[in-house]
Design a binder for these strands. Structure first.
Lengths: 101, 101
DNA sequence: AGTCAAGATAGACGTATGTCAAAGCAGCTA
DNA sequence: TAGCTGCTTTGACATACGTCTATCTTGACT
């Protein structure tokens, strides 16, 4: 009885949750993940009320958390989701077994 | 095409993710969720290296995020998970459709 | 009432985080 | 070469957060 997360797993998991723990970043993640394709930063920025540098900062946080990846092509930078990471988070959320009730 | 989260949803979602964005809280949540039953605080606290008040603080954060609930019975306080909330988070994570790779 | 134990709350302290303006860098076009 | 555009980095600032000690509350048991 005890499939609880160990300390190391908790540290890593919490780091990824922290990346989603901001409204701007969660919307960014949602926009990128729901696009079904890569998204240009130039299409993202105007949808927010914060400055360009702030968007750039948040995208970097998502990237360092392994949730998205990006590539520069010419003048523009494109982002796409990394679904494996989201799937892994989901497994952390799934109540691990004898879920009474 | 755009099933992206709106601002209000992002604010609420981010608040719940924030509750899980700390190693201590994530372990607490894991312990409570994997117990298959309610858990006494007196059984939780000794498993951590932080002080009692700190555990109490983190449990309060989880409670206010709607992730757990609790009841005092006699001298002891018991916590249990609220799986609906975890399920809801999972739906936020599920990539919403045309997941092209 | 008095005492003890389990948790919660209050207040303080250092660190981390979100934001912006300003500067920097990469790639286009001329 | 120069100049422009899209995005990132830097540095600064105010606020939020995690932790602790000290104090309070609740209930049990004399």
């Amino acid at each position: 009885m005890d499939a609880a997360l160990d300390n190391a797993g908790a540290v890593e998991g919490a780091a990824v949750f922290k990346a989603l723990a901001d409204p701007v970043r969660l919307r960014l993640m949602s926009i990128i993940a729901s696009a079904g394709d890569e998204v240009c930063v130039c299409d993202i920025t105007p949808r927010f009320d914060v400055s360009g540098p702030t968007i750039s900062h948040h995208l970097k946080v998502l990237r360092e958390a392994g949730l998205v990846d990006c590539e520069r092509r010419g003048t523009w930078v494109y982002y796409w989701p990394r679904p494996e990471r989201l799937t892994w988070l989901s497994t952390l959320l799934s109540v691990p077994a004898g879920t009474t009730v």
